[in-house]
Simulated scan of single mutants.
Amino acid sequence: MEPEGASRHRERAPKRRVPVAAPPRMADPHPLFDDTSAAGGSGPPPGRGYGAPPPAASQYPPPASFLGEPVSSLAMAYGTSLASQGRDIVDRNIDRLVPVGRLKYYFAVDTVYVGRKLGLLVFPFMHQDWQVRYQQDAPVAPRFDVNAPDLYIPVMAFITYILVAGLALGTQNRFSPDSLGLQASSALAWLIVEVLAILLSLYLVTVNTDLTTIDLVAFSGYKYVGMIVGLVSGLLFGKTGYYMVLGWCCISIFVFMIRTLRLKILSEAAAEGVLVRGAKNQLRMYLTMAIAAVQPLFMYWLTYHLIR
């Protein structure tokens, strides 16, 4: 016989459950998607899990080159074409307003030409040949002909005149930025008025000449050379030196303008063989003398108040 405690212990022991196998799953006769997870299938490789190594570089598609695409190349070509067309339009408009090609001609100078031209402006009495030389129906560059007009000397003389005027005002304790600006603006305004008046006079007299507006600016700007010489003489020798040197420069610029402009304004009469005593040619002579006589007046008007 078994003891009573052993039988009780056997009755209280829990019953052990045996796992029951799950019934086999029936395949779906109508699957919605094909199973591509099998090895060796044609589908894409499975995604890498946590801690898995990165896929090989060959699995990524090569990056597309933006500049190598046809659309990009076409856009670049179109942009280049637009830029070139815009540059051509700007160049044409600039040439229409400011003839850059002609300006290059007026600045084609060298040191020898500048020295000879300055000597001609101050001592024009001994010069004999005033005719401008031509080559293939076009005037030669100023550096090859001292009689050709240029813009280098007038521009540099204008700037130097403003600087010398500032120096003269400074020696008299009258210098200020406003006074220097007023001096420069008044000189430029009188130059513009002078050129416009000459153009209007040539139109009223109906002069057929090859003088251009740039030529008139050049000839009108030559007087600043005499003004500079007169101002420097006034600063060094006082009013007596100013009046003596400025008087000489006024006579020189008068002779220079007469001998230069008579070949320009009276060229039509000389070509046609018309007598100078004709009414029309007398007007041209008076106009030439008036243009030459105005130069000394402007030289004195723009410098007398700077010498005290």
Rank of each mutant, 00 (worst) to 15 (best):
V109Y: 03
H127P: 13
R25E: 12
T213D: 02
Y304W: 13
Y224D: 11
L169S: 11
Q172H: 09
N147F: 03
G49K: 01
N147L: 08
L32E: 15
S58N: 08
A279M: 05
R87D: 13
H305N: 15
S37T: 13
P62G: 04
F219Q: 04
P139K: 01
L297H: 00
P53A: 11
L167H: 10
P54I: 02
S176K: 06
S65L: 03
D110M: 07
Q128C: 08
F144E: 15
H305L: 11
Y152T: 15
P154S: 03
L167F: 12
D178H: 10
S84V: 09
R262Y: 01
F33P: 05
A148N: 04
D91L: 12
A157Y: 00
A279N: 03
P54F: 05
I258D: 05
S58I: 10
D110R: 06
S72I: 03
F158R: 04
Q282L: 14
E11W: 04
A39D: 10
S176T: 15
S84G: 11
E272P: 00
R116H: 09
L196K: 04
V18P: 02
G181P: 01
V245F: 06
Q131I: 14
S84E: 10
V122M: 14
R116P: 05
A141W: 01
E268D: 15
D210P: 05
I162L: 09
T160N: 10
L216G: 08
R87L: 15
S233F: 08
F237S: 10
R174N: 12
V193L: 14
L204P: 00
A168R: 09
S179E: 15
Y161K: 11
G5Q: 05
P154R: 02
V18L: 10
P296V: 13
E11D: 06
G170V: 07
D34L: 13
Y224K: 11
K280N: 07
L216V: 03
A271F: 04
L302V: 02
G40K: 01
I228T: 12
M257G: 05
Y243M: 11
V225I: 13
D215V: 04
L287E: 01
A148H: 02
T212E: 09
S186R: 11
L188V: 08
M156P: 02
L275E: 04
S233A: 15
V229G: 12
D95C: 09
P61A: 14
Y152K: 00
D110W: 01
R133G: 09
L275G: 07
A269T: 05
A138F: 02
A271Y: 01
G273D: 05
G226L: 08
V276R: 05
A292K: 00
I198N: 02
